[in-house]
Computed example of a mutant assay.
Amino acid sequence: MQIQTYIKEALDKAEVIIITAGAGMGVDSGLPDFRGKEGFLESLSAFAKTRYRL
C-alpha cells in the first residue's frame, strides 16, 4: 500500500483530527529556529535568500 493511500484511509476513518503547528514549537524540542543567529535562514546562500520574502 502506498503511503498516500494509507494516510487517506487513516484520515477517512478518524473521528477527530488534531493538527498542532506554530512558530517556535520545534525550538522547544531542540531544533534551530528559522531566523535566529544559527537558524535555517543563515545556512542559505545569498542567492537562495532572495527567493524568500520575510
Rank of each mutant, 00 (worst) to 15 (best):
Ile7Pro: 10
Ile7Asn: 09
Lys8Asp: 08
Lys8Pro: 06
Glu9Trp: 15
Glu9Arg: 15
Glu9Gln: 14
Glu9Tyr: 12
Glu9Met: 08
Glu9Pro: 15
Leu11Tyr: 11
Leu11His: 10
Asp12Gly: 13
Lys13Thr: 07
Lys13Pro: 14
Lys13Cys: 12
Ala14Trp: 13
Ala14Leu: 15
Ala14Pro: 15
Val16Gly: 07
Ile18Phe: 06
Ile18His: 08
Ile19Arg: 11
Ile19Thr: 12
Thr20His: 15
Thr20Lys: 15
Ala21Phe: 05
Ala21Met: 09
Ala21Cys: 07
Ala23Pro: 04
Gly24Trp: 04
Gly24Ile: 05
Met25Asp: 09
Gly26Thr: 06
Val27Tyr: 05
Val27Cys: 03
Val27Leu: 07
Asp28Gly: 11
Asp28Thr: 01
Ser29Leu: 10
Ser29His: 05
Gly30Leu: 12
Gly30Glu: 11
Gly30Lys: 04
Gly30Cys: 11
Leu31Asn: 07
Pro32Gln: 10
Asp33Thr: 05
Asp33Gly: 07
Asp33Pro: 13
Phe34Ser: 01
Phe34Ile: 01
Arg35Gly: 07
Arg35Asp: 08
Gly36Cys: 04
Gly36Arg: 02
Gly36Met: 00
Gly36Trp: 00
Lys37Leu: 09
Lys37Phe: 00
Lys37Asp: 10
Lys37Gln: 12
Gly39Glu: 03
Gly39Thr: 09
Phe40Gln: 11
Phe40Pro: 06
Leu41Asp: 06
Leu41Pro: 02
Leu41Thr: 01
Glu42Leu: 03
Glu42Pro: 02
Ser43Phe: 04
Ser43Cys: 03
Ser43Leu: 05
Ser43Asp: 08
Leu44Asp: 00
Leu44Ala: 08
Ala46Tyr: 12
Ala46Gln: 11
Ala46Asp: 09
Phe47Thr: 13
Ala48Cys: 04
Ala48Tyr: 00
Lys49Asn: 10
Lys49Gln: 13
Thr50Glu: 12
Thr50Trp: 08
Arg51Asn: 10
Tyr52Asn: 04
Arg53Leu: 04
Arg53Ser: 02
Arg53Gly: 02
